[in-house]
């Protein structure tokens, strides 16, 4: 479209191969059954994959700088939302209220593969 676009096509197959390799790692991670490893392989790799797609497929680094600011601003707003809402939502009781179902759930150990559990 414009001259800035001439040089930004990299080797897309290579990026794709990287993405697939990362996918294998993130699926394999939980088999070690160490929670920290699972979290890192699941979410750390998700961030890396998202970065690869955003930079190499969406060309966010070729686009104008304000696009990066725009995307990161919305992400920061979401972090803010999470930070301010989580203290309320994650509580089981607060001033003048309780969440009976949450307390009950915490007390009864769940059964894995237990089928449908309507409550």
């Amino acid at each position: 479209m414009s001259d800035a676009h001439e040089s930004h096509h990299g080797n897309y197959w290579k990026i794709w191969a990287w993405l697939c390799a990362l996918l294998v790692v993130s699926v394999a991670g939980p088999f070690l059954e160490i929670q920290a490893v699972t979290l890192i392989t699941a979410f750390g790799i998700a961030v890396v994959k998202a970065y690869l797609v955003a930079v190499h497929f969406m060309h966010i680094n070729v686009a104008k700088r304000y696009i990066v600011y725009l995307a990161s601003t919305t992400l920061i707003f979401m972090l803010l939302f999470f930070a301010a809402v989580a203290p309320d939502v994650m509580q089981e009781d607060g001033s003048n209220w309780t969440k009976p179902a949450w307390i009950a759930e915490a007390q009864t150990p769940p059964t894995v593969h237990g089928g449908a559990n309507p409550h």
Partner: peptide
């Protein structure tokens, strides 16, 4: 895309905070 980020962001943030609060 910016407006989609906040749509999915709001939903996923709500999910994550529930998930962290419910070990079950």
């Amino acid at each position: 895309i910016a407006s989609e980020i906040v749509i999915f962001g709001g939903l996923l943030a709500s999910y994550i905070m529930h998930r962290l609060a419910h070990d079950a």
